[in-house]
């Protein structure tokens, strides 16, 4: 049996939630003060996900960088691979909010999109 400690982010209480696992099966969840903590902890041990935000280099733009984000959450384990792709990417101005900057980043099926407009120089 394995024990994983998780801090719930549902509210400022920040309950320390303990999940007991047998392989992939959750045996128990304890330490949470409300059901939000239970749901959150189960998700965190099975399939933790995050949104990644960063910036990408812009060619011929009025600004040198454009801010970007993954269009939805990606698996936490893919964050580094996603950052590598973002750091290699270059876009040509003009760029508009929502434009796809990288397709299917790190094989996650999620696109990286621009979060601001950058006009041509």
């Amino acid at each position: 049996m394995e024990k994983v400690d998780i801090t719930c982010i549902g509210c400022p209480m920040g309950c320390q939630v303990t999940v007991e696992l047998e392989g992939k099966e959750v045996l128990s969840v304890s330490g949470n003060s409300c059901p939000i903590g239970d749901t959150y902890a189960r998700k965190e041990v099975s399939n933790p996900e995050r949104t990644v935000t960063s910036t990408v280099f812009v060619e011929d733009g009025e600004k040198v960088r454009v801010s970007v984000k993954t269009a939805s959450n990606i698996p936490k384990a893919k964050i580094n691979e996603c950052m590598e792709a973002i750091n290699k990417a270059v876009v040509k101005a003009p760029v508009a909010i929502g434009d796809v900057v990288i397709e299917n980043v790190a094989g996650t099926g999620v696109n990286v999109i621009a979060t601001r407009n950058v006009g041509a120089a």
Binding site: T53, T55, S67, K69, T115, R116, N117
Partner: peptide, 25 residues
């Protein structure tokens, strides 16, 4: 907000998580 490129803005107002520049826009 232009420099706050992380997400988490606007949950109350727009019921979605925007980045700073998106919220400003």
């Amino acid at each position: 907000l232009n420099q706050c490129i992380h997400n988490g803005f606007g949950l109350h107002t727009f019921k979605e998580e925007l980045t700073g520049p998106e919220y400003a826009y």
